[in-house]
Structures are given as C-alpha cells and as structure tokens.
C-alpha cells in the first residue's frame, strides 16, 4: 500500500480526496496547513506528495522546493486551479511528476497516482527516467504526456508519448526501429512499422516550432532526435 502526503488548505476537497483514495486502498496523510507539511514528512514516511498550489503562507511551489532539498526522489504531483502557462511550466521544471487541474476526477487522480508509483517501482529511482525535457521553447513532460510551446499545450497519445520518450532517452543518437517497435508494441510487425511512420510524422509536425530540434531518418537503422541547442542544467 502506498502512502500519500496530501497538502491542501481546502478542507472540503482534501477530505473528499482523502476518503476516495483511502476507499481505493491507499493510505493518505492529510495536511491542511502547508506550514506543517515538512514536519509531517520528516516524521512519517510517504511515497508520493500531492500538493495544492495556491495556499496561504506557503504556496505549493515553494513547498515542493523545500521538499526537494530534503528528498530528491519522492514523486510530486501538483493539484491546482491555476491555468497560467507560466505556473504549469514552473511546476514541471521543479521536477513535478504530474500537474492535475482542479476540478479533477477522483478516479483519474487515483489512476495517475498509481501510474506514477508503478513507473517509480519499475525504474528503481526517479533519476533513471527524466520526466521533463526542455529543447529551446519546447517543454516535453512525459508524466502528463504534454508538449508545451510558446502558445499552446499539446496532449500526446500514449504511443506518441512513449515514442518521443524513447527518442529523448537517445538524444542525438540512433533509436533503432526494431527497439522502438519492441518497446511500444511488443513486436516488430511490418504493419506496426507503418503505423510508426505516421507517429513519427505527427511528432515532426509538433516539433517544427523549434528549429533546433528535428527527427532525422537513420537510413536502414531507425531515427535520430537531433538537437543543436544547449540543454538546461
């Protein structure tokens, strides 16, 4: 059973969220006062933090920064009514694993928490798989399956997300076509290979707003995600 630290000053939503997640066999440590969150985290082990963004005294971003100073691995999910792009980017760049807009569906929240925890369990630690990539004016967030550009947020399908994640993991190197097919579909069937061309073309279209990044064909081998710009530290 996972234990969740839920920090939200809104007693109605936080209580409903706690009850819903506990009814799905998760353990929830509820904290309505963000000033107490760090102390709670010190005293009680938690597997994941769900943080409201807009709170009195300490906002969710500041709290996440404090949590990160003490624990670089714990997954963090922001729960927020904020729709400002700058806020979403700030959250993702703080290393958030997901960013869920209020009002959220309780079941979707539950499923996203489970997905994040499964990913962590499979990868061992958070740092094995970066969840946010920035290429110039493009930010790609694997957890929320989003690409954020100057003026829009594009939600990727599960396959597009997986394909782009594999390309990012092999940045400026060759991702073999066979490996991509195997990892995404579980086999290298020729028809799935044709589907992959469609997904590659769609990703090329999305990425074309940033001239420094492009998906090149490595003839007879696979694809290269080529980036000529500098990566953030």
């Amino acid at each position: 059973m996972f234990r969740i630290l839920l920090v939200d000053d809104d007693p109605t939503l936080s209580e409903i969220t706690r009850e819903y997640l506990e009814a799905r066999d998760l353990s929830v440590l509820l904290c309505n006062n963000p000033a107490n969150a760090l102390d709670l985290l010190k005293r009680h082990h938690s597997d994941i933090c769900l943080l409201d963004v807009k709170m009195p005294e300490i906002d969710g971003f500041t709290l996440a920064e404090e949590i990160r100073k003490k624990d670089k691995e714990i997954p963090i999910v922001f729960l927020t009514g904020q729709t400002m792009k700058e806020d979403r980017i700030r959250g993702l760049m703080l290393g958030a694993d997901d960013y869920i807009l209020k009002p959220y569906s309780m079941e979707e929240l539950y499923l996203r928490v489970i997905a994040i925890m499964k990913r962590y369990k499979n990868s061992g630690t958070k740092n094995n798989i970066p969840n946010t990539y920035q290429f110039g004016k493009i930010i790609f967030h694997t957890g929320s399956r989003e690409i954020i550009t100057d003026n829009q947020t594009i939600r990727l399908t599960a396959i597009e997300n997986k394909l782009l994640s594999l390309l990012c993991a092999n940045l400026n190197g060759t991702l073999s076509r066979d490996r991509a097919l195997q990892e995404i579909w579980g086999d290298n069937d020729i028809y799935k290979g044709r589907s992959m061309n469609v997904y590659i073309n769609k990703l090329r279209n999305i990425l074309k707003v940033e001239p420094d990044i492009e998906i090149l064909n490595a003839h007879g081998e696979g694809y290269i995600l080529s980036y000529k710009g500098s990566l953030p530290e």
Binding site: L13, P56, K102
Partner: peptide
C-alpha cells in the same frame, strides 16, 4: 486564497 477555494468547490 479563500476566493480560490470557493471557486474550486463551485466547479
């Protein structure tokens, strides 16, 4: 912050 909380509940 308080208006924000009311807004979320109304949604």
């Amino acid at each position: 912050v308080t208006a924000h909380s009311i807004k979320s509940q109304c949604a």
